[in-house]
């Protein structure tokens, strides 16, 4: 296997494995947020803002994986 092929396979794995954690995190986050809005609908606005910030943080982790994948494809 030449280095370029290995880098491409690694990039695919990087993105795939890197998306597992944030996927679980976002699912958990939104589930909990919906639960708490159902329990206390008047606090919906505040819960929404907190949820979106949390989602942005969780999403950033998969984007780090994306950056590494891009580096593997274009630099390695």
């Amino acid at each position: 296997m030449d280095p370029k092929t290995a880098a491409l396979i690694a990039a695919g794995f990087c993105m795939g494995v890197g998306a597992i954690g944030p996927g679980l995190a976002i699912g958990n986050l939104v589930g909990k947020a919906v639960e708490s809005i159902a329990r206390q609908p008047e606090a919906g606005g505040q819960i929404n803002t907190a949820m979106f910030i949390g989602i942005a943080f969780a999403e950033a982790i998969s984007l780090y994986a994306l950056v590494v994948a891009f580096l593997l494809i274009f630099v390695a």
């Binding site: 942005a56 999403e59 950033a60 984007l63 780090y64 994306l66 950056v67 891009f70």
Partner: peptide
Amino acid sequence: FSLFIRLMANMLA
């Protein structure tokens, strides 16, 4: 570093 990567990667992706 995390501020810089987060914004860049989000817009790039």
